[in-house]
């Protein structure tokens, strides 16, 4: 503890990849407990924050079709697209239903065979196996009226991209629930290839402080290693059933990250043999479709703090979000705003 408070070595920059860590860092006032020489920055840790406006537009278009119901998680509803949000489309009469589990599509589709249920399939490794399970169950039940509009992303290639393009980030606090699926071992190549420490930790204040301590120590000792401080929850090999489900239905492809652009092999799309479950859409130029002035791209790569965005708190608030980082409960801008 005193080590972190009194640290006077060279400045270190640590990225917490996951929005739940960001929330806990604020709740527990962790920034005030550690030396200003240790800078904690928020990463792209929320699938909602990195979903491009073009995807929202595609979802709105789908929901406006006859005999189609769009199923979405609640946190997507307020994200602005170029033609408004899903919430606005719903208010104007589009068929949009908020779900808590994609598996709800099974019952809905069985009950209304003449309606097509399109699942807005957004998520990281944590959520992808759930979509894979949905497909397995649709195939088993012979359901043909469920499809996926996918914007699925994987965190590892994005972390590799950040390591390459933001070399002054010295170490990473890994996303907890993504790691439950991928396993701790998935970070080893990143640590080795980019020469930076990666630490997996729980969400409590003492977990985060222990992780920050560990990361600073590893940086100072020049040991670019993976350390798992959350072994009760994150296993070395992850969840093999979930990994197998992902590999059965999905294959890596380039993906568009809002505010960042395209990152090769950082997404997952349906394999060719399952393409009939896919609702295709044009990804568009994801940088050109962002709200003017929104600096989400710089926020999620740690180049600026949310409060440095000129729109923050003035034009952009949780009730009138300009960018997805303000919408999501785990978005950096939203967390900063609620804890001003």
């Amino acid at each position: 503890m005193t080590f972190l408070r009194d640290y006077a070595g060279p400045p270190v920059k640590i990225m917490e990849v996951c929005g739940t860590h960001t929330a806990s860092i604020f709740k527990n006032g962790i920034r005030s407990l550690i030396s200003p020489q240790i800078k904690l920055i928020s990463g792209p840790g929320c699938p909602v924050c990195v979903t491009p406006a073009a995807y929202i537009d595609a979802a709105v278009d789908v929901a406006q079709q006859e005999q189609v119901v769009l199923l979405t998680f609640g946190d997507m509803v307020k994200v602005p697209g170029t033609k408004g949000s899903l919430g606005e489309a719903k208010a104007a009469g589009a068929a949009i239903k908020v779900i808590y589990s994609p598996l709800q599509a099974l019952e809905l589709a069985a009950r209304k065979p003449e309606t097509l249920f399109v699942v807005a399939a957004v998520g990281f490794e944590t959520t992808v196996p759930v979509y894979a399970l949905l497909l397995a169950k649709c195939i088993e039940a012979g359901l043909t009226n469920v499809k996926l509009l996918t914007a699925l992303k994987t965190v590892m290639p994005a972390l590799a991209w950040i390591c390459r393009s933001e070399p002054d980030i010295d170490g990473f606090l890994c996303p907890g629930h993504v790691s439950v699926i991928t396993g701790a071992t998935a970070y080893r190549p990143l640590a080795a290839n980019y020469g930076k420490p990666f630490v997996i930790a729980g969400f409590g204040a003492e977990h985060i402080l222990a992780a920050v301590y560990e990361i600073v120590k590893l940086i100072r000792a020049d040991q670019p290693l993976l350390r798992n401080l959350y072994t009760n929850v994150v296993r070395e090999e992850g969840n093999p059933v979930a990994q197998e489900l992902i590999a059965r239905y999905f294959t890596p492809a380039a993906a568009h990250w809002r505010g960042i652009g395209e990152i090769g092999a950082s997404g997952l799309v349906l394999k060719d043999e399952f393409r009939h479950y896919d609702v295709p859409y044009a990804p568009g130029n994801c940088l050109a479709t962002d709200a003017p002035g929104c600096a989400c791209g710089q926020v999620i790569t740690g180049r600026i703090d949310p409060a440095e965005c000129p729109l923050f708190g003035q034009v952009c608030t949780p009730s009138r979000p300009q960018g997805p980082c303000m919408v999501s409960a785990e978005g950096a801008c939203g967390i900063w705003f609620r804890n001003r």
């Binding site: 629930h177 699926i181 969840n239």
Partner: peptide, 9 residues
């Protein structure tokens, strides 16, 4: 540990 209606761990 449950996410989106599915137990992950």
């Amino acid at each position: 540990l449950v996410h989106a209606g599915v137990a992950l761990q």
